[in-house]
Design a protein around this nucleic acid. Structure first.
Lengths: 190, 190
DNA sequence: TCCATTTCCTAGCGATGCTAGATATGAGAG
DNA sequence: CTCTCATATCTAGCATCGCTAGGAAATGGA
């Protein structure tokens, strides 16, 4: 039975290689550069191998997105923990969020704009996505007032997401980002 | 010279037909359904004719987006004018914004997410885009405090844009939209 | 050593955006 | 009225995309 175990291990490694390669390629040159042919070439297998691991290109992007949710949750948690006071926590978490999106634009796109049908069947996504959301919720909790915390958090999140996406599409000047972020933080921490 | 005038007029009409057809097709079936072959078939010309009017498919989408900016500006202005008081104006304009995006998702996408290089060379875009932005600015002016109105407006705009895009990608439940909108309005009208 | 099963690749399909080269159209000169 | 030439338009095709069927190759067991 050791050979079967080895095969399964190698297969898992190859699957991880596909995700990592797709991720690196997307970060370096954008998702348009991530073609199935090129991806297959990078991992030194033929195209159909990709489809024995994933249903299609969207599924590969979704797998990259899943990793992104975990990363984002960690980044937000770190920012929240190390903040001196609740108000500073909002500012730090907001900055961590937009920094994540700025530094990994392709991954952020896969997480929130490109992939419509996320694998909600999978266990990982709701978990890590919920973890990130929970970090946001805990951060703004002191300022939610008597209203619904979830709604309050979702609205704050929308503000961050809007800043990120409008800036990337060139509708907002990058130079004023910090000031806009300060306004958003101010509005949601009073 | 009348024949030449007629030709130019017919050519302008055909260009408008291309834009209108692309717009209708995108609204009805999404931008993926707007292929150059199908678009050419709808206007009863061959594909290359499209390229004698526009540089490519992106340019056609940009033309649709330009019309969208004008529409949005009108909708926002109407909402702002008919509001009873400044605070209600913020609520009404915000609702008008998200309604526009909800009812014309394809056009909204062309305006703010799909097209990266908008024809800023053209005169129309900055004008109509600026008109819409100016409507937002006038709406929130009473609540901007002593800070920069432009930055304040941009941040408010980001909130609206984030609500719209996160809801469309399925990250936010549609049922709670009104409550999120109320939170956003509350944060930016106090 | 031979067979059966699994794994993988070659080759190809349909569709996309876009374009070069051939063809039709029509205005103006003789 | 006819011919010419420029303009307008189409037919056909290219390169590329995501994806897949069918056959070849490798692998494990008898």
């Amino acid at each position: 039975m050791s050979t079967q175990a080895r095969r399964e291990r190698e297969r898992a490694e190859r699957e991880q290689a596909i995700i990592a390669t797709a991720r690196d390629l997307a970060l370096a040159e954008g998702w348009d550069a991530v073609t199935t042919r090129r991806l297959a070439g990078e991992i030194e297998y033929s195209q159909p191998v990709l489809y024995s691991h994933f249903k299609g290109k969207d599924a590969i992007m979704a797998a990259v997105a899943v990793e992104g949710f975990a990363e984002l949750a960690v980044a937000l948690a770190s920012a929240r923990m190390s903040a001196a006071d609740p108000r500073q926590a909002v500012a730090d978490v907001a900055a961590a969020y937009t920094d994540f999106a700025e530094q990994r634009p392709a991954i952020y796109d896969a997480m929130f704009t490109l992939i419509v049908d996320l694998p909600f069947a999978s266990q990982d996504v709701p978990t890590d996505l919920a973890r990130g959301f929970a970090e946001l919720a805990e951060t703004v909790r002191p300022f939610a007032g008597d209203g619904d915390l979830e709604t309050f958090t979702e609205t704050f999140w929308s503000g961050l997401h809007g800043l990120v996406t409008l800036m990337r599409s060139g509708r907002l000047r990058r130079t004023d980002h910090d000031r806009r972020l300060a306004v958003l933080v101010d509005r949601f921490s009073r």
